[in-house]
Design a protein around this nucleic acid. Structure first.
Length: 570
DNA sequence: GCCGTTTTCGGCCCGACTGTTTTCAGTCG
């Protein structure tokens, strides 16, 4: 059992204890221990040794024993016992906004509710209103929350989908019966959330390949099996479908299965206008099939430039492909540096030096550190004194490290009235300032728009962080007039963040083209809170591609000298 | 369950918001 799995168990114990009505501080001790574990860079064996000799703050005798048991056996009797005493459905109920452990426990003990389905039923029967602390409004909110959860159920973040698809592709690619292989569907188009995985293979032996697919690691069961197609359910509940076609049909199947449905409908119309018929099996002129070696050849047959999968959303890409005005998309290799990285100074899990070394390893030329500001006390935001201390540390680090330049920034809270979280003299001391909203999400649209626009007019602000505040599959964006915000950013020459954390992907790609028209510039920021978070930059590149951005619009494609000059001009 | 000590118990992070109350508990970030 690795560290991540152990921290997950500890967190779940904390939740279960709360549901049981245990002392909340006891429950928090488990959550604290999970965090302490996360923050420690050590590998597991040396960690266990340090815990046993009481060297880890937040992990005492009892927790050290439990963690040792987990690390050694992969199980914990105490955890199993707790799980058995609390209905599993209560953990689902905790996902409903407004329902925490206390209220969930009340629902359980007073009304006998043990699952989301029972909760929905009870709401419809108007049974919540009699409970202490509940009323008609909260019952209505609970119902809305359940609706939202249902809507999201069965969807996954882009990152999760990529992680599950990669090993499937790897195994199938090695199979001798595979001639060509590709991911398709919304994952190939890099949509921000994905329902299921679609794979296409070219092979002369479909049965053999489908057999192999059904028995890949991580496949829990086969849901459907036909001659050329199989659907399986993976062990996390995700659905994956493999289509096997003859090699000549591969480009057509790939195109059709990649979609979007709207995009392929446009292509079929276009074919028809040329006396051709485009299907998932081929391109026909009357009865005569026209051979196409790859997707590009199909587009060519329709007098179109090749349209990258990310753009196939019926957002004007066919018109642009006809006019030869598709954007010149860039890939990860064009990104030269990174902004928006947290460290242990606030809520990050790694120190600045470790982050810098990892960034250098990944080939980046500069790293912009930006911890939280003082209002973000839940994230150990920096007061003015700690800002000074960190400044000294980062200056020394920058002087010491070869091959990577450190920029010293801050992620300053945008206060409800649109001011930033420090006085001007402190703001002026940073190389760059990211302004972000972390509280007071529920302002009216007018107030929130004014708040962001005022922040954008602040001369010390460099860029606007996660502009809409959304958390994919969890929290809707706050209400804000993003067109007005983009206008303000363009007017004041501020950079708009493309937050590359796969839970955010914010700015939304749908707004990128409007921002481009207004002349806005962008920065692809991983918002990394641990070492592996730096690699999230890839998801930001996916958003940029989907938003038709070219390298020239993205400041992190500049080299260190150029970006330093741009920051200095601020 | 952890920690620290004025050392074996008492406190454990803060503030805003919401919907319920009629002075506050629970949730959230």
């Amino acid at each position: 059992m690795d560290k991540k799995e152990i921290t997950h168990v500890l967190q779940e114990i904390g939740t279960l204890l709360e549901l049981q009505g245990e002392n909340p501080f006891k429950s928090r001790a488990y959550v604290n221990a999970a965090r302490a574990l996360e923050l420690l860079p050590d590998a597991l064996p040396s960690l266990v040794e340090r815990m046993k000799s009481h060297q880890v703050k937040g992990i005492g005798k009892a927790l050290a024993e439990k963690i040792t048991e987990l690390a050694a056996t992969g199980k914990l009797a105490y955890h199993e016992k707790l799980k058995a005493s609390v209905p599993a459905g209560l953990l689902d109920i905790l996902q409903v906004p407004g329902l925490g452990p206390k209220k969930t426990r009340l629902l359980w003990t007073q009304l006998g509710i043990e699952s989301l389905g029972e909760l929905e039923y009870a709401c419809n029967e108007n049974r919540l209103v009699v409970l202490e602390g509940f009323g008609a409004r909260s019952q209505e909110k609970v119902l809305q929350g359940i609706e939202r959860l249902k809507r999201f159920r069965g969807r996954y973040h882009l990152s999760a989908a990529r992680q599950r698809a990669a090993p499937l592709l790897e195994h199938l690619a090695r199979h001798p019966a595979t001639r060509r292989l590709s991911i398709a569907g919304s994952l190939r188009r890099c949509r921000e959330t994905i329902r299921d995985l679609d794979l296409v293979a070219a092979s002369a032996a479909p049965a053999a390949l489908l057999d192999a697919f059904a028995s890949l690691p991580g496949v829990e069961r086969v849901e459907e099996r036909e001659e050329t197609r199989a659907t399986v359910i993976l062990d996390n509940g995700m659905r994956a479908e493999l289509h096997v076609v003859p090699d000549a049909a591969f480009p057509f199947a790939l195109l059709a299965l990649t979609g979007s449905a709207e995009h392929t409908a446009l292509l079929r119309q276009r074919a028809r206008a040329r006396g051709l018929t485009l299907t998932k099996d081929g391109l026909l002129q009357g009865d005569r099939p026209l051979a196409c070696a790859d997707e590009a050849a199909i587009y060519q047959a329709l007098d179109l430039a090749f349209i990258p999968p990310e753009l196939r959303e019926d957002y004007g890409e066919v018109v642009a492909a006809e006019a030869g005005s598709l954007p010149r998309l860039f890939d990860e290799t064009a990104v030269r540096g990174i902004f928006h990285v947290h460290t242990t100074w606030s809520d990050g899990a790694a120190g600045a030096e470790a982050m810098a070394l990892r960034a250098r390893e990944l080939g980046y030329a500069y790293l912009g550190i930006s911890d939280h500001s003082k209002s973000a006390f839940y994230a150990r935001g920096l007061d003015e004194e700690r800002v000074r201390q960190q400044a000294a540390e980062l200056a020394a680090l920058d002087a010491r490290l070869e091959g990577i330049r450190i920029f010293r920034g801050i992620e300053a809270d945008i206060l409800p009235d649109g001011r930033l979280d420090y006085d001007d003299d402190v703001l002026a001391s940073f190389d760059f300032v990211i302004g972000s909203v972390h509280s007071h999400f529920n302002l009216s649209e007018g107030e929130m728009t004014a708040r962001l626009c005022r922040a954008l007019s602040n001369p010390y602000l460099t860029m606007l962080g996660h502009p809409t505040g959304r958390l994919l599959l969890a929290r809707d964006p706050y209400s804000v007039d993003m067109h007005a915000v983009i206008d303000a950013a363009a007017e004041h020459g501020k950079i708009i963040e493309i937050n590359a954390n796969p839970h955010r992907l914010d700015l939304d790609w749908r707004l990128c083209r409007y921002a481009t028209e207004r002349g806005a510039r962008f920065s692809i920021n991983p918002d990394a809170h641990h070492l592996d978070g730096l690699a999230d930059t890839a998801y930001g590149v996916a958003v940029a591609r989907k938003g038709w951005l070219e390298a020239g619009q993205v400041v992190t494609t500049l080299d260190a000298e150029e970006v330093a000059a741009a920051l200095a001009r601020r």
